[in-house]
């Protein structure tokens, strides 16, 4: 019994510890924010892995969907719960923010999922490098569309999300951001794992390995592609929403191709189609970036160089296409990874 629920218990313990530590301010604000970015990066890399790893497509525009989620949830939160120059008085009592916050993030995710259709529909007819272009174009389209939306700040960016968080803290004083980042990270990984381990979701792997055989063997490839792209971009939207509320400020420039590249690097570093690899590499990559922060601009020479070296010696990424349980079989006693 204990064994069966051990993972759940560990997670609850971790969440409790994180809340306690953040509440008592035992960790510096910096450490806490690194931990939160780690969570966001886990969401981003594992959701992109669904498309690039499991489905074998080559999406290079993940940050575009993140951007949609970030803006939708930011604008929604600010519009509903804060006094803002543009939107005027709050539409709802700011006290409600505490209940509405997860839904605001989810709405951002749903909006991003629909933005994912921008890529999903062309993917019916085309794949590979042509689809890669479509994702790049989609990323640029999202960014330049927001740059041209003067109402929400255009290229100057949009802010006011900190007020939503403080409205939540006014009702019950808890470290809300770490809590929600933790909850959503667990939710995303959990949802992806359930999706890819179901027979329904294994259709995704079938498409990757032989699309023709999949279609003829009764897999509705268009439907699976649509669902997968929507799930992937929707989770990216959730990650984007959290990212926006952590920083308290968004601007389109932070969701450019460079950001997409960063996420892509995490996926390939972890190993394609390996969920635990994505999680692991997101953690490592976040730590690496933070550790090299003192190098300033040199950081962006050292990091790519390290990656190139990793690719030379371990071209399949950290985990290959295996899960943690394939490397450490004793883990299977606690948890089924596949």
């Amino acid at each position: 019994m204990l064994r069966r629920y051990s993972i759940q218990l560990i997670l609850i313990a971790c969440g409790g510890l994180l809340t306690y530590v953040a509440y008592e301010e035992l960790l510096s604000l910096y450490t806490l924010s690194v931990l939160m970015f780690m969570g966001v990066n886990i969401i981003l890399s594992s959701s992109l892995n669904l498309v690039n790893g499991n489905m074998g497509e080559f999406s290079c525009g993940h940050a575009g969907f993140m951007c949609v989620g970030a803006y939708v949830s930011s604008v929604l939160g600010v519009w509903l719960f804060t006094k803002d120059k543009v939107f005027g008085v709050p539409l709802l009592d700011p006290e409600w923010a505490i209940y509405a916050f997860p839904f605001i993030i989810l709405v951002g995710g749903v909006a991003a999922a629909f933005a994912g259709l921008l890529v999903a529909i062309p993917s019916y007819k085309t794949r590979g490098d042509y689809l890669a272009i479509i994702t790049i174009a989609a990323n640029y389209i999202v960014i330049s569309a927001i740059e041209n939306l003067g109402v929400i700040g255009g290229s100057r960016g949009f802010m006011g999300m900190k007020q939503v968080i403080s409205a939540m803290e006014d009702v019950v004083y808890l470290p809300w951001m770490p809590i929600w980042v933790f909850v959503f990270t667990i939710f995303c990984v959990w949802a992806i794992r359930r999706y890819v381990s179901s027979t329904f979701g294994k259709g995704v792997n079938a498409i990757c390995q032989d699309e023709v055989a999949a279609e003829i063997m009764s897999v509705n490839t268009n439907k699976i592609k649509t669902v997968t792209f929507m799930v992937s971009s929707g989770l990216a939207g959730i990650g984007g929403g959290l990212f926006a509320y952590i920083i308290g400020y968004v601007n389109p420039g932070s969701f450019n191709i460079l950001k997409s590249t960063e996420v892509m690097v995490m996926v390939y570093l972890g190993g394609m189609a390996s969920l635990s690899g994505s999680v692991l590499s997101a953690i490592l990559f976040t730590l690496l970036l933070e550790a090299l922060r003192p190098l300033q601009i040199i950081k962006w020479i050292v990091v790519p160089l390290l990656l190139i070296i990793v690719m030379q010696f371990r071209p399949e990424g950290i985990m290959g296409n295996r899960e943690l349980s394939d490397i450490f079989p004793w883990l299977k006693r606690f948890y089924r990874f596949k």
Binding site: N52, F58, T261, M264, V265, Y268, M272, W300, I301, V303, P304, L305, L307, I308, M311, P315, E316, G317
Partner: peptide
């Protein structure tokens, strides 16, 4: 895998 070469190319660009 071809995609790893692509990532390497991206990294070279960044460098």
């Amino acid at each position: 895998n071809r995609l790893y070469v692509v990532i390497t190319a991206l990294m070279c660009g960044l460098i």
